[in-house]
Design a protein around this nucleic acid. Structure first.
Lengths: 198, 198
DNA sequence: CAGGGAGGTTAGCGGTCGTTAACCTGAAGG
DNA sequence: CCTTCAGGTTAACGACCGCTAACCTCCCTG
């Protein structure tokens, strides 16, 4: 884990605030002036850092999809030779960490995809598909009887389950991050088990 | 089941098309001219049927929440004296039917709530909360060991699982409606079981 | 110390969008 | 047969929004 200690760049500040605002009010519901104000500059000032409002969304969505995929690939590589069950657990854990720590991004991820330029959307879709296929492979190792279409549906459904964290109330009304993560993990495994047996 | 056989009113046509468009491109991403064109009239023509664009969204969201709650109450009443397990199954079945048959509405339901006027949003939230509480009660009858906060989290998560249907590809690439419904049902039960035991 | 680029500012343009105004039309009712 | 009204139409207004233009001000560097 290469933890960042240096201060975030202006670009990163902007992306973070833009993600929050987009998640709260939707891409079209947020003006560039608001995004600028959130980082203490005027709206047009943003154009020193991004080609346009679309470019911010694109960078966010490509970034999320890429991060998820990269993280999953790393987990798979690290767990070479390990039991499939443990790999599946590792994938679930990674996704939960992401869902709990980057709620706005998780929200955007499946909500504003259609607002992207064609080329960006295709890229994001491709990354997402790879991520799903990776899960499907591991899942079918754990449950060999599971047909591929059913496995894909099961993976999408568990993503829906894990990505429900934004609906779980503000962080604080929850029983605590650890307990929530454990609950989600158990439920995901339970859902997969129910999909894979019978 | 009081199946409608008469032709849909103009209002209903508009609501249906508006729901589809809002789900596809977001509330702010759709213009009134487009909604009008979808039912064969001009944009301003809509104002003979609705006070404004906001009013369409409000009616959609209030309608969804009300329908879900009403359906759930009916199911609970019909199943008086029946085992809690069967009641839970009935709730799940009802929610799945809704998610599979009214995908655009399911999408809107948790996506565009913040675009509502304060009073409408409060109403929708109240209906949603009642719906959740109803599930929580039944769930805790089936799994008495489950604490209330955990039960609420579990219910929200299972909603996320069931509401993932829009991500499962167009209806046709699926293994068939019946099979999909069964898979979702099994996974929901599996997730609840995992939440409720240990 | 000159100069140049990075990173701001404000003013304003062009387009879009929700909404209103004014007008039209066909069918129903007395 | 005249009236009324539900349900349309087009034109246009005002607001907002993304983006560009033009300008300013540090700070770094040769």
């Amino acid at each position: 884990m290469a933890t960042r200690t240096d201060a975030p760049t202006r670009r990163e500040q902007i992306l973070k605030e833009a993600a929050r605002l987009f998640a709260e009010r939707g891409f079209h519901g947020v003006g560039v002036d608001e995004i600028g104000a959130a980082v203490g500059i005027s709206g047009p000032g943003l154009y020193r850092h991004f080609a346009g409002k679309d470019a911010m969304l694109a960078e966010l969505l490509v970034g999320i999809s890429g991060q998820l995929l990269t993280g999953a690939k790393r987990r798979l590589q690290e767990a070479d030779g390990v039991a499939s069950e443990a790999v599946l657990d590792s994938l679930i854990e990674g996704h939960i960490d992401f869902a709990l720590d980057d709620r706005p991004l998780i929200t955007l991820h499946d909500r504003e995809l259609d607002r992207l330029r064609d080329s960006d959307r295709k890229l994001v879709r491709q990354l997402q598909r790879q991520y799903v296929e990776l899960w499907v492979e591991v899942l079918r190792e754990v449950y060999p009887g599971l047909a591929e279409p059913a496995a894909r549906s099961a993976v999408h459904s568990v993503f829906g389950l894990l990505n429900s964290t934004p609906h779980l109330g503000r962080p604080g009304s929850l029983p605590g991050r650890g307990a929530t993560a454990q609950l989600l993990h158990r439920m995901a495994r339970g859902a997969f088990a129910a999909a894979g047996t019978q």
